[in-house]
Design a protein around this nucleic acid. Structure first.
Lengths: 177, 177
DNA sequence: GCTCCGACTGTTATAATATAACTTGGAGGC
DNA sequence: GCCTCCAAGTTATATTATAACAGTCGGAGC
């Protein structure tokens, strides 16, 4: 299992810019995993949640790709690590992570991805690259506001909204590197 | 199979207002089905597409509810009508209808819904009522524009976008009728 | 310490959604 | 008529997800 997928050197953006679209920019990935896990641990401690070994491991697996992963992809990895790993194991951990904002479900892919901004209260939009399957989060507040407006005119009250774009990420849109 | 689901008399809107959110407003449903089928027939004739009996029947089934229906819901109805109806029958018809804009897939529900505006070139947002599962289309152009802007900043080129809101429709939000 | 409780995990089974692959049929062009 | 192509029929299987129940573990209260 390769842990660093996108440390290519060519990019439209410097490492310090555009951190909102982490997934499409080069960065120190192992540090990024460690950070995210630490944030999750702290958040759980503060909120009285239990980041058990299973949940933490699943979070790490998700973090290792900045890529949407199916529940069964995760199960396969758990199995390689020697666990029995029946489906509910993965789904329960994923439910926990999604429910508490450490991960998101990408509806379009029936897959899951680690949250790029754990701890912050946010409802992101996803940019899904149809070529490499990498997924980035992008701010969705403005789009959500307009959507809520349109909904209100219809007398509809929005609880949650799924906003997912499919297209080409910067790397895959370029002819070559 | 009840064909008219929401001809309730109470609504925030008159019949002639808010036609963009057809699904949450009372209207003459059998006429609405006939209209949509006619539009589809004409569009196919003009474009050299074949609206076969199967495809037409699946479209009618979808239209009968203004509701998202799973492929297997449709299969069940086809079976009741005497067909053998294996999954590919439904999926192929749905693929055709979605591909040519006569129906949409609601990713959040893994389900399908007839297009409320066939013939018009549009990419709607969906308003999904979590209580009654009815689904309305609402204009999404403004929200899409903002999303495209945010994506462009990340160097991402959007091909298609899924915009789906879950919440309460006018009827279900009211305490009672 | 003990016990109870509630939350998490383990396990089996199965449901729900979707597609692959190959065969048969039927409409239209030539 | 015959060929071609696309659609429909059919079998099998892949993929995604949940139900249901039994076992385990840790902390709260006594």
């Amino acid at each position: 299992m390769e842990l660093i997928y996108h440390n290519k050197t060519k990019s439209h953006y410097s490492r310090t810019e555009q951190m909102d679209t982490l997934s499409f920019t080069p960065h120190d990935h192992s540090a990024c995993i460690a950070d995210a896990v630490r944030t999750a641990e702290q958040t759980c401690r503060e909120s009285g949640l239990r980041l058990t070994a299973q949940r933490k491991r699943v979070l790490e697996i998700l973090l290792s790709g900045h890529r949407a992963m199916g529940a069964y992809d995760i199960l396969d990895i758990l199995k390689e690590e020697g666990q029995t790993a029946q489906p509910p194991i993965a789904y329960r951990a994923l439910d926990f992570l999604v429910q508490h904002g450490f991960a998101h479900k990408v509806e379009r892919l029936n897959a899951f991805i680690a949250c790029a901004h754990p701890g912050e209260d946010h409802a992101p939009a996803f940019l899904i690259c149809s070529d490499c399957r990498r997924v980035a989060e992008t701010p969705s507040a403005p789009a959500r506001a307009l959507l809520a407006e349109a909904a209100a005119e219809a007398g509809f009250r929005i609880d949650t909204a799924v906003i997912e774009a499919v297209g080409q990420c910067p790397d895959c849109a370029e002819p070559a590197a």
